[in-house]
């Protein structure tokens, strides 16, 4: 403190209360009880003054917690005839809302569709459950690969590595079928799942 005193000697009088302030206040050093009340009052008032805007800010800051991701709905993706045993990536086209903007008919994601029987289709979400990268189909080895942390999956989405980066197998999506004008279509319930967990839960 010796140094401070030397550096800022021009301000040395700051520590003592001035005898005649702007509002005609007097030094309150005489009465210890009044001193305590002054301290308490100063603290409470300062707290209220600062906490009010902090709360206002905090409430608005927490707003994203109210927002849920879109719940799944069945979307018609392709005519059954157009699919075969090789996985095909099909884009999900939906209206997308980003804060104040609404984008109609935008690609919002994709699924891998593959015929597993004469009239049966398997749908696998394109997002890797590890860190949210998009998995690719590795045609040479007939399997799925996540390029970010090199995880491998078979065509049913089952992990192939001994220690896979992915905490669970790839997410399959519910599939339904409908026939219209003699053409059989594949419908998929498109929803996002929580990333990074061993259990598949809706995001």
């Amino acid at each position: 403190m010796q140094r401070l005193g030397r550096d800022f000697k021009g301000n040395a009088s700051m520590s003592t209360t001035s005898s005649n302030g702007c509002c005609g206040c007097r030094s309150g050093a005489g009465d210890p009880r009044r001193g305590f009340l002054a301290k308490l009052g100063a603290l409470v008032l300062a707290l209220v003054a600062y906490v009010t805007p902090a709360i206002a800010g905090l409430v608005a800051f927490l707003n994203p917690l109210r927002q849920k991701s879109k719940s799944g709905e069945f979307i018609r993706l392709a005519a059954l005839d157009t699919l075969d045993g090789t996985p095909r990536k099909v884009a999900i086209i939906q209206d997308r809302t980003d804060a104040w903007n609404r984008y109609p008919n935008q690609p919002v994601g994709a699924v891998w569709l593959r015929k597993v029987g004469e009239n049966e289709v398997k749908a696998i979400h394109v997002v890797c459950p590890h860190a949210g990268c998009f998995i690719d189909y590795d045609a040479a080895n007939n399997r799925f690969v996540c390029p970010c942390h090199t995880a491998h999956f078979d065509l049913d989405g089952v992990r192939l590595d001994a220690t896979s980066s992915s905490p669970r197998d790839l997410d399959t999506l519910e599939v339904d079928y409908e026939t219209k004008d003699g053409v059989k279509y594949v419908l998929v319930k498109f929803q996002n799942f929580r990333i990074g967990t061993a259990d598949k839960v809706e995001a």
């Binding site: 800051f61 927002q67 804060a99 995001a203």
Partner: peptide, 18 residues
């Protein structure tokens, strides 16, 4: 709290303007 933290970090369930 992971899910809540991510929402707070990216301003909602998905990345975008916010």
């Amino acid at each position: 709290i992971g899910s809540a933290l991510r929402k707070l970090a990216i301003g909602g369930p998905e990345m975008g303007h916010l």
